[in-house]
Nucleic acid binder design. Structure first.
Length: 437
RNA sequence: CGGGGCGUAGCACAGCCUGGUAGUGCGCUCGCUUUGGGAGCGAGAGGUCGCAAGUUCGAAUCUUGCCGCCCCGACCA
């Protein structure tokens, strides 16, 4: 992509409404534009990152055996009356009336909707286990939206729902998602740690939230220092026993958010207990038959008897992750994207646009990068070197390749790693090898 | 929902107290000079001063009402 053909409205100064770093950087890098409180448009650069994250989440859900569906944003109120949550959910739920005076709502979550789908079609234990997920926009009318995209009212969430015949089955489903989350966050380039969590209004008896460590996190977290040294599971699939042992390993160390932490009962030695702030980016629940009972979701068991299915739900805040990753990965010059979610792989800078030799060398190198499969943002504009470098640093692409007249003469390109700041001058071939090899 | 703050050009702000032709910096356009880490000079474009009433000869400025946004707290993926 040539910068001159891209839409990248960057800002040199911080918009005053943005107080935290991810919000500031997202606005400055031209990733988003606010529409109203807690509601944003995603501009091309931000949209690329959002979709990259979404795709990684999707791939790991698919690999874990969950099946993707897509449920609507608008739901009929009657479903929520069945579960009893239409009245319970309160003002956070955006209620809408259609032209026929039917009560509708913009979905804050989809337990009712998915349970309705399940009960309409699944009648036998032979169709279990089943895990359905979708990646869809949600709306929760927060009293106080803040922190840009991280605490918006409208947000993109992956939510999966598991259905099993009994508790033992749903425990496996829960562990399966737990492990899938560990893999997902590792691929996103972030260290997310699981915490025992309060089950809140969704209810249930087994719940963990996954939080990204960042100084600006909303809640304080306490954990054993060895938790961060655990290896992320890598196998494509695990047996139920293996899943259980991985979960046991990751939950074997103390880890709790401030609402669950009790200094009096915490038995971790002071030197081993780390206190930091964290951003919740995922939350998994086992809630048994709460919804299957209220909504009559049952199947015939092996013995022919009707059995209420045991359910769990598993959320990942996709749009929140964009902000969360920035909070965890930035420096004084801008964003530092993990390669897996970066909007482009390489930023190519033409230091002297208009110079025939320099233009030719850049065009040639650009073409080679593209044919090698790299996603490149090529700054071929006539801007000044300093501004070009500053802009590239701001948008945080993993690699920057720079070609100027001197480099053309010497037959080299300067390659900079955004994260480490290391620069090296390489021959075109070596640079290609490094960038796309 | 309690408390606080702010709405003036794309962005950051001054002007308001003490009413009198709407400004500065950055960004944008054009020209020239520049060009290896946020350039210089010159010339331009761009604003019903959040909205509405009121006071006044005259309102960005004073009064009242409304709307919007941000921050702290309580609440939450």
């Amino acid at each position: 992509m040539r910068l001159s053909q891209f839409f990248l409205p960057t800002l040199k100064e911080d918009p005053k409404e943005a107080q935290i770093v991810s919000h500031r950087l997202m606005l400055r890098a031209g990733m988003i534009q606010q529409s109203s409180a807690g509601i944003y448009s995603w501009l091309p650069l931000g949209h690329r990152v959002l979709k990259n994250i979404e795709n990684i989440v999707r791939e790991e859900q698919n690999r874990a055996g969950a099946l993707e569906i897509l449920m609507p944003t608008l739901q009929p109120a009657d479903l929520w009356r069945e579960s009893g949550r239409y009245d319970d959910y309160g003002k956070e739920m955006l209620r809408i009336t259609d032209r026929h005076d039917r009560d509708m709502l913009y979905g804050p979550t989809n337990e009712e909707q998915v349970t309705d789908i399940f009960r309409s079609h699944v009648k036998s234990y032979k169709n279990l286990p089943l895990n359905l997920y979708h990646i869809q926009w949600k709306f929760r009318d927060e009293v106080r939206p803040r922190f840009g995209i991280m605490r918006g009212r409208e947000f993109l969430m992956k939510d999966a729902y598991s259905f099993d015949l009994d508790y033992e089955g749903s425990k496996i489903a829960y562990n399966n998602m737990f492990v899938a989350y560990l893999k997902t966050f590792a691929r996103l380039g972030i260290k997310a740690i699981p915490l025992r969590a309060d089950t809140g209004p969704i209810g249930g008896d087994l719940s963990h939230e996954f939080i990204v460590l960042a100084d600006t996190g909303e809640s304080e977290v306490f954990y054993h220092k060895d938790l961060l040294t655990l290896d992320t599971p890598t196998e494509a699939a695990y047996s139920p026993d293996q899943l259980q042992s991985i979960v046991d390993e990751w939950t074997g160390y103390y880890a709790a958010a401030d609402d669950m932490h009790d200094a009096a009962t915490c038995d971790v030695a002071a030197g081993d207990l780390i206190t930091r702030r964290g951003i919740e980016v995922g939350h998994i629940f086992h809630f048994g038959d709460k919804y299957s009972k209220a909504m009559g979701a049952s199947v015939a068991g092996p013995d022919g008897k009707e059995t209420l299915v045991s359910m769990g739900s598993y959320g990942i805040g996709v749009s929140r992750l964009v902000g969360g990753i920035i909070e965890a990965s930035h420096d004084e010059n801008g964003i530092v994207w993990p390669a897996s979610v970066a909007p482009f792989d390489v930023g190519l800078i033409n230091l002297k646009s208009g110079d025939d030799a320099c233009d030719a060398a850049c065009e040639d190198f650009y073409g080679k990068l593209i044919s090698a499969g790299a996603d490149v943002l090529y700054d071929e504009t006539s801007g000044r070197a300093g501004e070009k470098f500053a802009k590239m640093d701001l948008i945080g692409l993993p690699w920057q390749a720079t070609i100027g007249p001197r480099g053309v003469k010497a037959g080299v390109v300067e390659v900079k790693n955004r994260a480490s700041g290391d620069k090296q001058e390489l021959s075109l071939d070596d640079a290609l090898q490094l960038l796309v090899g």
